[in-house]
C-alpha cells in the first residue's frame, strides 16, 4: 500500500531548521578556533539571531503546523504524549508532538540567550561583541561566562533532540528527518492537511527581522 503523505512543514520552517543546524555547527567550530575565526563566528551569530527571531514571529503568523498555538500543549497532554512515545502505539501527532513542541520552544529560548549574550561578550584579548560598549566590563565578563555555560545547555538539548529523532525512527518507525526535508508526513487521511501561508509573508518578515538585527548590532 502506498502511504499517504501530506504537507506539514512549510518551506520557511524547513529552511530555518537546516540553515540553523549548519550555522550552529559553524559557530561551535569557529568559537573554538578563536582568533581571526571569531569574525565569522560573529556573523554566524547574527544570522542565527535573525533566524530565531524570524521563527518566533513565524510561530504566530506562519503556516498552521508552524504556529506555537498548534503545538504548545498543557502538562497533561505532554505527559500523555510521553506515555505514547514510550509505549508501543504509533504517535498521533501530525505536527510537533506535545513533548517535541516544548523542545522547539526550549531550543529557541536557549539560542536566543546564546546569541544575545554573545552581543555583549569579550575575550579579554582582541574581540568584543558589537554591544560590549553598552555594558560594564564586569557585566560583559559575566555574560561571556553565560555564553559558555549556555552553550553546554544548548548541546545537551541538541543531544536529546537527536536521540529523540532516533527513537522515533527505530522504535516508532517515524521518519522525521525525511519529513523535515520534504515537508511531508504520512497520515491516515487528508483531514489534517492545511494550506501553507504565502512565501511572500515569510520573505517580508525575514527582511524586517534581518534589518532589525543589522540595526541592533550597530547601536
Amino acid at each position: 500500500m502506498r502511504e499517504l503523505l501530506i504537507p506539514i512543514w512549510d518551506l520557511p520552517v524547513r529552511l530555518f531548521h537546516w540553515t540553523l543546524l549548519v550555522l550552529v555547527g559553524f559557530s561551535w567550530w569557529s568559537g573554538e578556533q578563536g582568533e581571526l575565526w571569531l569574525k565569522y563566528h560573529f556573523w554566524s551569530g547574527y544570522a542565527i539571531l535573525t533566524l530565531v527571531l524570524f521563527r518566533v514571529i513565524w510561530g504566530f503568523c506562519g503556516s498552521h503546523y508552524a504556529r506555537f498555538a498548534q503545538f504548545l500543549r498543557g502538562p497533561g497532554t505532554v505527559l500523555g504524549s510521553l506515555r505514547e512515545l514510550l509505549g508501543p502505539q504509533a504517535m498521533r501527532s501530525l505536527g510537533h508532538n506535545p513533548l517535541g513542541g516544548w523542545m522547539v520552544l526550549a531550543l529557541l529560548a536557549v539560542l536566543l540567550v546564546q546569541t544575545l549574550t554573545g552581543l555583549f561578550a569579550n575575550d579579554d584579548i582582541m574581540w568584543e561583541g558589537p554591544l560590549y560598549a553598552h555594558v560594564s566590563k564586569d557585566l560583559s565578563d559575566r555574560l561571556t561566562g553565560l555564553h559558555g555555560l549556555n552553550f553546554d545547555v544548548l548541546l545537551a538539548l541538541v543531544a536529546v533532540h537527536v536521540l529523540a529523532i532516533g527513537w522515533h525512527r527505530w522504535r516508532k518507525g517515524e521518519r522525521l528527518v525525511r519529513a523535515m526535508v520534504t515537508g511531508r508526513k504520512p497520515a491516515p487521511s487528508t483531514t489534517g492537511q492545511s494550506a501553507f501561508v504565502s512565501l511572500w509573508r515569510a520573505g517580508v518578515i525575514f527582511l524586517i527581522v534581518a534589518l532589525a538585527v543589522a540595526g541592533l548590532i550597530r547601536l
Binding site: 578563536g34 582568533e35 575575550d123 579579554d124 584579548i125 582582541m126
Partner: peptide, 8 residues
C-alpha cells in the same frame, strides 16, 4: 594571541 587564549 594563541598563547593568551590557551592560558585563559
Amino acid at each position: 594571541i594563541k598563547t593568551c587564549k590557551g592560558c585563559h
